[in-house]
Amino acid sequence: MYALAVENVSFGYTPDVPTLRNVLLDVHKGEFLGLIGPNGSGKTTLLRLLDRIYIPQNGHIRFNGRDINLLSRTEIAQQIAFVPQDTGPLFPFTVLEIVLMGRAPHSRGRAFENPRDRDIAAEMLSLTDVAHLAHQPITALSGGERQRVFIARALAQQPQLLLLDEPNAHLDIAHQIEIFDIIRKLNRGSGLTVISVSHDLNLAGAYSDRVAMMVCGAIAAVGTPEEVFTESLILDVFRTPVVVDRHPSGSVPRVTLVHSEQTSLWAGRTSAHVSNRVEPTS
């Protein structure tokens, strides 16, 4: 059974301007799916629909076989967590208070968190390397630190499905790897299904089982990183020339951007380079 089935979903924030058109996507239980595509292609909107922040105008979204429109807000929050892009100005809640908010869907009807909630929050704080900031106000943190706090809050929800909207946007390279390693571990270890929007194709390629590439509100391609990351498809979708070869470690494709001065050089590369490329599998 698919963890998530997106069936011909269409949506627009205003009636006449469709943001998503007939999106069709199945996500397996325990899968790590990378969602990539140019700005404005509908990635964040799709995530919002998957968490029922908005409701599709057409089509259905099924989670574990059930239409998510039939679930209560609390039921959704108990199973699906969302790590947003950085949010705006906040009241000065402490980092611990923010992470404890992730326990809210599991403690409806209780005014205060119980010891178990506190244990889980503490675990997630150290997992995302923000335990030392627990009593700092969130407003005093850097963008990257805040991002890790929001990831900790999402993990404190103990979800089955984790939606990440550019989780690496504000992270330094060490924390990018660290956070993705943690999420990957949860994904492999406890079967957490992950959908992650990313602009970093290499990071998406390194961690995703499959990638879905979106263009103009539709899914243009879905497949393993090897299948999707081809020079021609990326040129088509992003209108940017790239070189795709193998990551030195050998396991995943590597996408290298080519800026304008390099383009002529790139065009005249020798066949030795070309043989190094990943052949698109059809």
């Binding site: 807000r73 609390t74 108990q78 009241f91 208070e97």
Partner: peptide, 15 residues
């Protein structure tokens, strides 16, 4: 508490 961190965040956390 949840709403004061954002409407969407509050919805994502079950409010």
């Amino acid at each position: 508490n949840l709403i004061s961190t954002g409407d969407e965040t509050a919805m994502q956390l079950g409010v």
